[in-house]
Simulated scan of single mutants.
Amino acid sequence: MKKNPFKILILGITSVCFIFALSACSIQSKPTSDNSEKVVNLFTWANYVPDSVVNEFEKQTGIKVNYSNFSTNEEMLAKLQASRGSEYDVVICSDYIIEVMGKQKNILMQPIDKAKIPNYKNVDPQFLNQVYDKGNKYSMPYTLGSQMIVYNSEKVNFPIRGYKDLWNPALKNSLVLVDDPRIVLGMTLKKLGYSMNETDSKKLDQAKQDLLKLKPNVKVLDADTPHNSLINGDTTVGFMYGSQASAAVKANPKFKIVYPEEGMNAEEDNFIIPIKAPHKENAEKFINFMLDGKISNEATTANEYVNTNKAAKKYMSKEYLNNRAVFIPDSELKRAERFRDVGSATKTYDLIWSEFKQR
């Protein structure tokens, strides 16, 4: 049968339009590439990367930083799982949660191409190749956090040298502790001579009973600002992060810093790139910028965490170097214990902590 040329024309036009429509849809649905959008989506704790550093990166590169924050590593992981690693470009998170993610069937991190980050050479080797990410396949260190004892030397009339001293009955209703189960239980386990990552049920039960004995001495649990209760005089002794202890000492020079004789904890916070980061090239540029020695020093001077960058040392001020809360000797850091993924024992930790807080 002879075909109507008008119909053929209409069909041809319709087909062309359909093809263009499909192409347009394809273009719209394709994730924006590094070359077409000058953006990097950063996900970490609030104020962890100082505004001055963010502004300098934007000025040097023309890449805008979209800063989103989380409160806990667990919250970060939940959001990364919900987006399947496609919403953020750079995440700064802790070592043990990287170990958790590395064990999952669907890895939410992508390997970092070290050739794209030449400032990786600036990282102090003692902070590399840790058990949570051998060879630093997925992560690069940013800073290190640690907890320590800080106390008012005018109000405590006996020497405090370690965790065991916090159980002294003379400190009844005098302690402030950072509100974190792994940290406080880790302290208790260390006092008993065990690992901070203990999973043995009998040892954990022993730690539980010992922790409950500490409760009469505890007046305040505070995750964010435990130093405030020391400064305002509500408490006289605290166990908290170095940056928080530093704030207390700056407010009152009578406060003394103690590195617990039983051994400290050390937590490395790292840069990772999610598996489906929409702006991978910008993520690499951001990490490389952050590992510059001068920039690294600027960041840790502001957030008062331990600097992990050997190239930053020449920029450090005397004030930073003399601050025992944030410039911890290598001798202490080398014997410090890192938190590990404790697997199913996590539930036991949570139950112990819940009972402790309810007492």
Rank of each mutant, 00 (worst) to 15 (best):
N119H: 12
D210Y: 05
A248I: 02
L351W: 06
R340K: 14
P141E: 06
F57A: 04
L211E: 03
N47P: 00
F239D: 06
T72C: 03
M1V: 06
V237K: 10
D205S: 12
N303G: 02
L108F: 09
A311N: 03
Q244V: 00
G193D: 06
K203T: 03
M109F: 15
N119P: 08
S344F: 08
P111E: 04
R338F: 13
Y320G: 00
M101V: 09
V249K: 12
Y151N: 11
T300A: 10
A245M: 12
V326W: 09
S201N: 05
L351G: 00
E75T: 07
P50R: 03
P169L: 05
S344E: 14
Y349N: 10
V176Q: 11
P260Q: 09
L321S: 06
D330Y: 10
N47D: 11
D34Y: 08
Q60I: 12
A170S: 14
L11V: 14
N228I: 15
E268N: 03
F43N: 06
W167M: 03
K219V: 07
N323F: 06
R84M: 04
F289G: 10
T72Q: 01
A21L: 15
E319I: 05
I19K: 04
T308L: 10
G263R: 07
V220R: 08
V326Y: 03
I149W: 10
G85R: 07
E58W: 05
E332W: 07
Y194W: 09
T143D: 14
I160K: 08
L212Y: 09
M196N: 14
P260I: 08
K208N: 13
F255L: 04
S23K: 01
D222M: 08
N41Y: 10
S153K: 15
E74F: 13
M76K: 02
M1W: 02
M140P: 00
S153R: 14
N152G: 07
D330L: 02
D350S: 13
L11M: 11
Q244C: 00
K79D: 08
K213H: 06
L221N: 03
N322H: 09
N152V: 07
K2H: 09
N265C: 03
S296C: 08
Y320A: 08
F239M: 12
A82E: 15
T143L: 15
S52C: 04
L291E: 12
A21N: 10
S23I: 10
T301R: 03
F43M: 11
V220M: 05
V39N: 04
D292Q: 07
A277W: 09
N55Q: 11
Q28G: 02
D95N: 13
K285G: 04
S29H: 12
F57L: 07
T308W: 13
N55W: 00
H227A: 12
I8K: 15
K137E: 14
K208E: 10
E262H: 13
E74R: 13
V123I: 15
S146H: 11
N303H: 02
N270S: 13
T236H: 01
G186R: 09
S153D: 02
G145P: 01
Q28P: 00
D269N: 14
I275S: 11
K155N: 09
I63W: 10
S317Y: 01
G102I: 06
N106Y: 04
